[in-house]
Nucleic acid binder design. Structure first.
Length: 566
RNA sequence: CGGAGUGUGGUGUAGCGGUAGCACGAGCGCUUUGGGAGCGUUUAGUCUGGGUUCGACUCCCAGCACUCCGACCA
């Protein structure tokens, strides 16, 4: 490709609003352009990279035995109604209607479509297992897009779905995909953590996220010292330290307490005790059932809403309660009791068993209760793990420290079980001639997000340093403008020769640009090798070669140069 | 969806209740050519709709868009 003909330009300045390096460099380098928030044009340069990432994934999938296909982008809404995901899907579905009044969802994930196509055929256990996948544009009505390609409303995703006779067979595929995914991310130049995660609205029992550590990531997860336990904050288990478990239980009392004592900090100050000695109530409302949920937890811990939803089996349904909600159960913010409210559900965190003689739980304007003991003075019908883990907490067995990390979720694999096949009555015939529901898994990778994540992890102050596998071009020939006609001819000859043997080359043939501008662009775009041809290099009949990832330049004869680049 | 903020040439920005300025880019001419070069010249702008005012880019209201925080989120 000749750079003079390349559509899309680099820019010297870019809005300071673009904080994520991937966002800034991809825009500045002319890889992508914003249409509206969360929707991007991929310019020719960005398309080159995207195609290469697609190729890496496609090759890996095909090698694993999966088969590529494609579903329509418009999904009949009835399918989503079959699985009851029109309202419960965590993301708002984008809906539309054709002029005959048929309703569709713009695909955001494709479980229903795939199950639907599979159930159109009479399939025997002999046909199983199989794994079908696609690359397709996904639409998600994200409330807030951010960070350029890191979180968007429309993006290319590889999503695969495997079908099995039972869990045992499925597990082989799950394990295989875990390896395939790790190899894909390695080829893309990234080290991914395999993180136990929450299933969310996809359904099923367990799943893993592949997370690349990064400052600009949104996934928070924990890693044990030996690296064997890696879990997302929404599922991370940890040991609650025993605060004063040996203390003797004292007599329950209601005592007076100054009116200024309102927050957790206030009580800690007033009683001169750590916040772990107090009871805390966090109130939620189930937006589907309207039920009020009161989560009671040790004062120094926080409730993890996702864990709470898992415990109550109401994924995505909880929201913070408002003052009006509290009124309905006869109280107001700051005066929620740990027992006694009618028409609401109480859930306790395991931490309530680590403290004797809690303070709090029955706060009124001028009084509160002290020496409150869980199990003696109050007890909730549910006690479970609903607390947020924090950096430095111990693993469940108490043997290792957990380190908190932040990263970008670049892919994930899900166990779906018979969640979809049973809801959609998708069956195969087993060896006894009986209809059985498929046992399923699904596997996703967002292409644009991977592209952004590569930039997040492969850049310096001047621009992107693409891994060779997915660099837009392997070689960037930079011809420095000169009176010497020979410079142009030498550059053109080298370009023709490399292109002739199938090397991917970008040739900066632009006239009237200074060396500085050309070098700055080359650094920004980030091709793996830069070859400079100028009057100076020609003096010795040499070519200057520099790897983008290294500082030093080499002067090579054409023969040696071709050996490196071919 | 709640809170905050911002909207000025293609891009990045300044400014003021009274003629809208700078830089980059783009076009042309000349010069220059190893880290975003110089001179001259041309080009192009106050988000939309109302209101206040003699006069609004500026103040007020509404809408839209974008950014940030929260909520939400394979």
């Amino acid at each position: 490709m000749k750079q003079s003909k390349l559509f899309g330009k680099t820019t010297k300045t870019v809005s300071k609003d673009l904080k994520a390096p991937s966002h800034r460099f991809l825009i500045q380098g002319g890889f992508i352009a914003e249409s509206v928030a969360g929707r991007y044009y991929f310019l020719p340069l960005g398309m080159k990279v995207r195609d290469k990432i697609v190729k890496v994934i496609e090759d890996a999938m095909n090698n694993s035995g999966a088969e590529k296909m494609i579903t329509p982008v418009l999904h009949p809404l009835e399918l989503w109604q079959e699985t009851n995901r029109t309202s419960t899907a965590g993301f708002e579905l984008m809906r539309l209607e054709d002029r005959r009044g048929s309703e569709f969802a713009l695909g955001g994930t494709a479980e229903e479509m795939i199950v639907d196509v599979v159930r159109k055929y009479n399939i025997s256990y002999k046909d199983l297992p199989f794994h079908i996948y696609q690359f397709s544009q996904k639409f998600r009505d994200e409330l807030r897009a951010r960070g350029g390609l890191l979180r968007v409303r429309e993006f290319l995703m590889k999503d695969g779905y495997s079908f099995h006779v039972d869990e045992e067979d499925f597990k082989k595929e799950y394990e295989k995909m875990r390896q395939v995914y790790l190899e894909i991310f390695e080829k893309l130049g990234m080290d991914a953590f395999v993180v136990e995660a929450d299933n969310g609205y996809i359904g099923g029992d367990y799943c893993h996220e592949f997370v690349v550590e990064s400052e600009n990531g949104e996934s928070v997860f924990f890693v044990s010292e030996d690296g064997k336990y890696v879990a997302h904050e929404d599922v991370a288990k940890f040991k609650r330290d025993e605060i004063n478990i040996d203390e003797q239980e004292k007599e329950f009392e209601i005592i007076s307490q100054p009116e200024w004592v309102k927050t957790m900090d206030d009580v800690a100050k007033h009683y001169k005790l750590p916040t772990s000695r107090f009871l805390k109530n966090v109130v939620y409302k189930n937006r589907v059932s309207e039920e009020i949920v009161i989560a009671t937890i040790r004062g120094d811990l926080e409730v993890n809403k996702t864990k709470l939803e898992q415990v109550l089996d109401c994924v995505g349904a909880l929201e913070e309660a408002t003052a009006e909600d509290l009124e309905k159960i006869g109280t107001k913010p700051g005066y929620v009791h740990a027992w006694g409210h009618e028409n609401c559900k109480y859930v306790a965190d395991l931490s309530l068993k680590t403290v004797k003689n809690f303070i709090g739980g029955q706060k009124e304007e001028k009084t509160d209760s002290i020496n409150v003991n869980y199990g003696r003075d109050f007890e909730h019908e549910i006690i479970d793990d609903i607390a947020l883990a924090k950096d430095g907490f111990l693993t469940e067995d108490g043997k290792q420290k957990l380190t908190q990390k932040k990263g970008i979720e670049v892919g994930n694999i899900f166990q779906l079980g018979q969640h979809y096949s049973s809801k959609m009555k998708a069956t195969f015939v087993d060896e006894k001639g009986e209809d059985k529901f498929y046992y399923m898994g699904c596997y996703g990778i967002g292409i644009g997000r991977n592209m952004a994540t590569v930039v997040e992890t492969h850049h310096d102050e001047k621009g992107i340093v693409w891994p060779e596998e997915i660099a837009p071009f392997k070689v960037h020939i930079v011809e420095l403008v000169s009176d010497d006609e020979n410079v142009k001819k030498t550059a053109q000859d080298l370009y023709d020769e490399l292109v002739g043997v199938g090397v991917d080359v970008l040739y900066d043939d632009r006239a009237d640009l200074t060396a500085g501008e050309k070098f700055a662009d080359a650094d920004l775009i980030g091709c793996s090798y830069r070859v400079v041809i100028s009057a100076k290099t020609l003096e010795n009949e040499k070519f200057e070669l520099k790897k983008r990832s290294e500082q030093d330049v080499e002067m090579l004869s054409k023969e040696d140069l071709l050996k490196v680049l071919k």
